[in-house]
Amino acid sequence: MSAITRDEVAHLARLSRLALTDDELDHYATQLDAIIEAVAKVSEVAAEDVPPSSHALPLTNVFRADEVRQSLTPEQALSGAPAVEDDRFQVPRILGEEA
């Protein structure tokens, strides 16, 4: 039995905001199935009582004083933008026609 179905891969692609073609979905479904089968080896490790580590070092939140500092100018911040209008990022519509 496969670890992941083609429909599940299509769902992952939607969640990942990747507009994949049917051929690509077939291809990735086969590859992801093999990869998931291999990485599932972690479930064989007996680790009920082991705490998880999200980081290598025991660091907690690091804060700085809440002071105004120099930051990028609008020109610098917008310098790589695909589209700009009136010193702002111009984006495609984000709401449906009805909204």
């Binding site: 992941i4 599940e8 891969v9 992952l12 692609a13 969640l15 990942s16 990747l18 994949l20 690509e24 990735y28 590859q31 992801l32 990869i35 998931i36 990485v39 599932a40 972690v42 479930s43 490790v45 680790a47 082991v50 705490p51 998880p52 580590s53 999200s54």
Partner: peptide, 27 residues
Amino acid sequence: KRRIMLGTYALSSGYYDAYYGQAQKVR
């Protein structure tokens, strides 16, 4: 693309504990 989808899978509800959570314990 493979890794983004694999990561999205490992973090999705229903699989999180078995994959990402377990990997953190192995860590």
